[in-house]
């Protein structure tokens, strides 16, 4: 069994090598799913690259980086696509990634300049609730209200970690007090985004930690205007999703071409209605109609990657202490 599979692998690999080069992109699982950007991205890139684009899905952003670290310098990946700024520092420390050499103007609310990590989409974290219900205007008001919330665990989920950084960026040393105030609003803490959002749709809580773009999904895909995101006046923390080229890639030119591709119109116009995030460069055709009615935070929060990494353990301890009472 093993040998036949192994042999088949070698045969197909040589067959492909003979015709077209192969570019391997490791990404998170929801990117490659039938409902994610993967299928369209693959088609669009293969039209211009004369290559075979192989997308490999690895659970979530954290698992993705762990997988690449596990494979180390011998990784099969040419590109890693899908970590966010909270993981960027750890990714940089591995020394496995090479500069992207892409110059472009980003439509990001914050300045972005990094020689290695290239943003491909972004969003704001936000609490999503049923439209028509009044929502608190900041964390203090939320803590004082009797609104119930569902959040993701920062130890197992990237949005959960994002919320941790949001409170830390907005409140600094006051963060523990904010968490203590929130502790009686929290219905439960889930392993990942899907569980929390699923519970929210079942009516288990008034609000769920998600993105400002979540209502656009319901509006565009389901013609359902019943969801809204609460605008918080202390600002919203951003999630910037990043791609990078592996230093050990055996397809450096193709990898470079792919990185140029992800900031191009073809890739960026796929993102909004498949990944339900903002493109880093607004496509010529503009954003889909459902995105126009979304809340626009007055202030964008984003800790520099190194600062976020340095603060993480302290913030996590504060969170655990406040919620374990």
């Amino acid at each position: 069994m093993k040998y036949s599979v192994f042999a088949a692998g070698i045969l197909s690999a040589t067959a492909i090598m003979a015709d077209t080069p192969e570019l391997t992109v490791y990404t998170y699982d929801s990117f490659v799913s039938d409902w994610g950007p993967g299928p369209q991205v693959e088609q669009a890139f293969e039209e211009i690259c004369a290559c075979d684009l192989k997308l490999v899905g690895v659970e979530d952003g954290a698992a993705l980086l762990a997988r690449i670290r596990l494979e180390g310098a011998h990784t099969d990946a040419d590109i890693m696509l899908g970590i966010d700024t909270n993981l960027m520092s750890a990714a940089r420390e591995t020394g496995l990634f090479a500069p992207h050499n892409v110059t472009t103007e980003f439509d990001l609310p914050v300045a972005w300049e990094d020689p290695v990590f290239l943003p491909y989409d972004w969003g704001y974290f936000a609490f999503v609730h049923n439209a028509g219900e009044d929502a608190p205007a900041n964390f203090r008001a939320l803590a004082a209200s009797d609104k119930t919330i569902l959040i993701e665990d920062p130890r197992s989920s990237t949005p959960g970690l994002g919320l941790l950084m949001w409170v830390k960026a907005a409140y600094g040393d006051e963060a523990p007090a904010i968490w203590e105030g929130l502790s009686d609003n929290i219905v439960t803490v889930t392993k990942g985004w899907s569980e929390a959002y699923g519970l929210f749709l079942e009516g288990e809580a008034d609000m769920v930690l998600s993105y400002t773009t979540s209502p656009a999904y319901h509006l565009i895909a389901e013609s359902d205007a019943s969801k809204a995101a609460a605008a918080f006046d202390e600002g919203h923390y951003m999630q910037v999703e990043l791609a990078a080229k592996l230093a050990a890639t055996d397809q450096p030119e193709l990898a470079g071409q792919f990185l140029e591709f992800i900031v191009s119109d073809a890739f960026q116009s796929i993102i909004p209605t498949t990944n339900w995030m903002y493109p880093v460069r607004v496509p010529k055709a503009g954003l889909p109609a459902g995105f126009n009615g979304l809340i626009q935070p007055e202030k964008s929060l984003l800790l520099p990657a190194d600062e976020a990494a340095a603060l993480k353990n302290k913030a996590l301890d504060e969170w655990l202490t406040a919620l374990s009472r």
């Binding site: 979530d60 954290a62 698992a63 980086l65 762990a66 670290r69 750890a90 665990d153 130890r155 197992s156 970690l161 502790s183 929290i186 219905v187 439960t188 803490v189 889930t190 392993k191 569980e195 519970l199 969170w319 655990l320 919620l323 374990s324």
Partner: peptide, 29 residues
């Protein structure tokens, strides 16, 4: 058990060994 314990446990008090394993793996490598 991990996801069940965490979700129904209502917060980080309901942390099991499996969650700690997951965290060690994924976020701390």
């Amino acid at each position: 058990s991990f996801a069940v314990a965490l979700t129904l446990g209502g917060g980080p008090r309901a942390t099991t060994i499996e969650l700690a394993i997951y965290q060690a793996f994924r976020f701390d490598f």
